[in-house]
């Protein structure tokens, strides 16, 4: 295996995992409430900043991650109750524009509270140390951490949805909110939970991006939009799809970065998005009904 391919696999998997974490939150929110969220980027910014604040105060990685998940969960749930529960039943364009407005407000709050500077965190562990895998392929400790975190998050969400009573209720609401309500499911509570999960996974994506590249808040926000091609590729309403789409777009972008140039990465994935809309708008694993939404 030559160095280029090793490079593509390494970078592609890590970027793909970030897209997958953004995407899975998007999908959970979309399935439960039908909202196309453009606010995932803003949740990432908040997650990254909360993590930075906690770890700068001397707490270690696990405390930082738990704080991000809890706080983002509360923020997501609160936002659903304050804004999107009131907009339920509006046209898709109204709710999605509301997420645009929400994204702007959250980003501005973050900029006013924390400032626009590059977010710096102390290294929580020696994440540059390389772990050799096979041939030229080796992962840094950070890469392994990112992939492990993604696997854990997906496992929790999938098991939670398939094996717990709450997961059953969430699937019922996703399938048919009215019928679920007649069956005694508290739709508002379930949707609040979905928004909480959506915000929490986006927050984790923000943390992961922060650890890898020390970005400023605005570029974290932009990454939330860059995940759309991946989300659509996987299918807007498919949880495994968000992982598959994320990894595929991650690998594609990494190959573009190696063979064509880093500047072309985003534009190529948006071209994929355009092509996909022509050929297979429901994505790889999405349901056909969603395409007609």
């Amino acid at each position: 295996m030559n160095a280029d391919i090793a490079n593509i696999i390494g970078n592609g998997l890590v970027t793909g995992c970030i897209y997958a974490l953004i995407g899975v939150g998007f999908v959970v929110v979309f399935r439960a409430t039908g909202v196309v969220s453009f606010a995932q980027g803003a949740f990432m910014v908040l997650g990254a900043l909360i993590f930075a604040t906690v770890t700068r105060n001397g707490q270690d990685l696990s405390v930082g991650l738990i704080a991000v998940v809890l706080v983002m969960f509360l923020i997501g749930g609160l936002i659903y109750r304050l804004v999107f529960a009131r907009l339920a039943g509006s046209e898709v364009f109204v709710t999605s524009i509301a997420t645009v407005g929400l994204g702007i407000v959250l980003q501005v709050v973050a900029l006013l509270v924390w400032g626009p500077e590059v977010i710096v965190v102390p290294a929580p562990f020696d994440f540059r140390s390389q772990v050799h895998v096979v041939g030229a392929l080796s992962f840094s400790a950070l890469d392994l951490f990112v992939m492990g975190l993604t696997v854990v998050v997906f496992a929790l969400i999938v098991v939670g949805l398939q094996r717990t009573p709450t997961g059953l209720r969430m699937r019922a609401v996703a399938n048919n909110p009215r019928l679920a309500a007649y069956g005694g499911v508290n739709v508002v509570r379930t949707s609040t939970l979905a928004w909480g999960i959506g915000a929490a996974t986006a927050g984790l994506a923000g943390v992961v991006f922060l650890l890898g590249s020390q970005p400023d808040p605005v570029s974290v926000f932009s990454l939330g939009l860059a995940a759309f091609p991946a989300i659509l590729l996987g299918g807007l309403d498919s949880i495994p799809g968000s992982l598959v789409g994320g990894i595929l777009i991650g690998l594609l972008q990494a190959s573009v970065g190696v063979y064509i140039g880093g500047a072309w990465q985003d534009v190529v994935s948006y071209c994929v998005l355009l092509g996909l809309l022509l050929i297979r708008p429901q994505g790889i694993l999405g349901s056909v009904g969603v395409a007609r939404l």
Binding site: V92, F228, L274, L277, R292
Partner: peptide, 24 residues
Amino acid sequence: VPGLRFKGLYLMLTTLALQFIVMF
């Protein structure tokens, strides 16, 4: 033409792609 084959959501995504492609 690609964006309007389906309901509004897809036009949003097509125009988002257009936005980035034109900038680039």
